[in-house]
């Protein structure tokens, strides 16, 4: 993508705001011990997307996020956030990195004022209002004056999200935003992310919880031991795997024969059920053919592959690898 020059007189208003919110080319981080945390990562996060960044713990998600935020210097490769230099991009980026971190002896509101003061582009005159708005948005207004020390885990996580919403943001980077939240809190975060995305803000969410990503995101990338294994829209990621039709029946052999006659591929008779690749066939026609052949159909279902199947297919391992 074209770099946007911010020198005096540059016609910035003419520059298209399109393109990708985050682009990396061959982004690599090798830590001093020689361990490669991120290996030649080529990421493209479209503007306006809710982008899920998936991978087991220790797959390099957080290190990638730290590089994007300028906290860790890449060993090799380049990256661009919002097409701007780091100093110009970061004020437009709200971030939650590896859990909340605040001053325990300050109140929630005072903590947000502190981080607002650190942003050179933030206006002091509007700080109080912006802090109040951010707290309101995450439902912490009532606890604004309470010391952070006395916040519950869920409140801390919300305060961190509030800190990410202090200014007008073009991009939100949320690293495991639902960590430590109860089911109610998780739902609230999901709703919040959807609201923010509806405003046109790009949201980059990392998670090791597949279901969460499937419910929130339009796009996703899958990491495994520092490498990118796949990225694209949720639909395109799933399309690599074919849908199956599953017929539950006591007449397994007959059902398999019928499916074979219909021309379905990969017919697999099992115990009390037969599966086959659906291909372009209409499920209702399959059902009619089975019934026509006198097969007792107890159930017929079309099984679409979930992101988890995609992940297992791509990496050959289960998803929730902890540690």
């Amino acid at each position: 993508m074209t770099a946007i020059t911010l020198e005096a007189g540059a016609p910035f208003g003419a520059a298209p705001p399109s393109g990708d919110a985050i682009v990396t080319h061959g982004l690599t981080k090798r830590f001093r011990g020689g361990q490669i945390a991120v290996d030649a990562l080529d990421l493209a996060v479209p503007r306006g997307s809710v982008f899920g960044f998936l991978g087991p713990n220790g797959s390099g998600k957080t290190t990638t996020i730290r590089m994007l935020l300028g906290l860790v210097a890449p060993t090799a490769g380049t990256y661009s956030v919002l097409g701007l230099s780091a100093a110009h991009a970061l004020p437009l980026v709200g971030a939650l990195v590896e859990g909340p971190a605040f001053y325990p002896y300050l109140s929630g509101a005072a903590n947000l004022m502190r981080f607002d003061a650190a942003d050179p582009t933030a206006e002091r005159a509007t700080a109080k209002r912006r802090v109040a708005d951010a707290l309101e948005r995450v439902g912490l207004s009532a606890a604004a004056g309470k010391r952070y020390r006395n916040y519950s885990l869920g409140m801390r996580q919300r305060l961190a999200i509030a800190a990410a919403l202090l200014g007008p943001r073009e991009l939100l980077i949320l690293d495991e935003p639902t960590n430590g939240l109860d089911p109610q809190g998780t739902r609230e975060v999901r709703t919040l992310v959807k609201e923010i995305a509806a405003d046109g803000t790009t949201v980059f969410v990392s998670s090791h919880l597949l279901a969460e990503i499937e419910q929130m995101c339009t796009h996703a990338a899958i990491m495994r031991t520092g490498r990118l294994v796949a990225q694209g829209t949720i639909a395109s990621l799933s399309s690599g795997r074919v849908a199956l039709v599953k017929v539950e029946t006591p007449d397994v052999a007959d059902a398999a024969r019928t499916l074979g006659t219909l021309g379905l591929a990969d017919v697999r008779p099992g115990n009390g059920a037969v599966t086959a690749e659906l291909g372009g066939h209409a499920p209702e026609k399959i059902n009619a053919a089975l019934v026509g052949d006198g097969v007792a159909v107890r159930g017929l279902a079309v099984v679409r592959p979930s992101l988890e199947d995609v992940f297992v297919g791509l990496t050959g391992e289960g998803f929730d690898v902890d540690g």
Partner: peptide
């Protein structure tokens, strides 16, 4: 851990 948030502010 507040250092990372101060620097990301930036």
């Amino acid at each position: 851990g507040t250092l990372r948030y101060l620097l990301a502010a930036p």
